[in-house]
């Protein structure tokens, strides 16, 4: 067992972990944030996606000890006190989910894409969500939601600034 330090959604945590503990396990069972889902444990489904030092990662494929010292953002950290993130709003508006199991991964992957490129090409959109499997929607509404989020990101200047 060894102590590790993680900053999760801005909060500092010190947890004692076994080297075999997966990051997703520590986030869910030790820190208690269950918005990050577990699907396949093979790296295929993307339900366990979090942001690790600013980059999305599948937290079933990262040992918690490797993440020692990292800044993590989970789905619980996407909205601000002022309200939903524009990406969340777009998924809401476009019905970009049904059961919602894939949703945390879809949202964080979309957020990363738009942070890098507010005006992504269609090909970049599909390449961004291709590591996130959805078993409900057939992806059409998800793709629409990402496009809507991108459109909103571009017109952000025309809307009142979020605090």
């Amino acid at each position: 067992m060894q102590p590790i330090r993680l900053t999760v959604n801005g909060d500092k945590h010190e947890v004692t972990v076994d080297p075999r503990d997966l990051l997703v396990y520590v986030i869910r069972e030790r820190i208690g944030l269950t918005g990050t889902n577990v699907g396949c444990l093979t790296g295929d489904c993307g339900a366990c996606t979090v942001t690790l030092d600013g980059r999305t990662a599948k937290s079933c494929s990262v040992l918690a000890v490797t993440a020692d010292g990292s800044e993590i953002r989970t789905i619980e950290g996407l909205a601000s006190p002022a309200g939903l993130d524009p990406v969340q709003e777009a998924f809401w508006k476009e019905n970009g989910f049904q059961c919602g199991y894939c949703l945390p991964g879809m949202l964080l992957a979309t957020r990363e894409l738009l942070d890098e490129d507010p005006d992504p090409a269609e090909e970049d959109i599909t390449r961004t969500i291709d590591g996130n499997l959805c078993r409900c929607t057939g992806y059409t509404t998800i793709l629409r939601a990402v496009r809507t989020a991108a459109r909103r990101a571009q017109h952000r200047d025309e809307r009142p600034e979020r605090p």
């Binding site: 080297p19 075999r20 997966l22 396990y25 869910r28 069972e29 577990v38 444990l41 000890v65 020692d68």
Partner: peptide, 16 residues
């Protein structure tokens, strides 16, 4: 749901 850990048996971990 109980989130699975990695394995039944643990291992030594070195991070040079």
């Amino acid at each position: 749901m109980k989130t699975p850990s990695a394995t039944r048996t643990t291992f030594d971990y070195r991070a040079p």
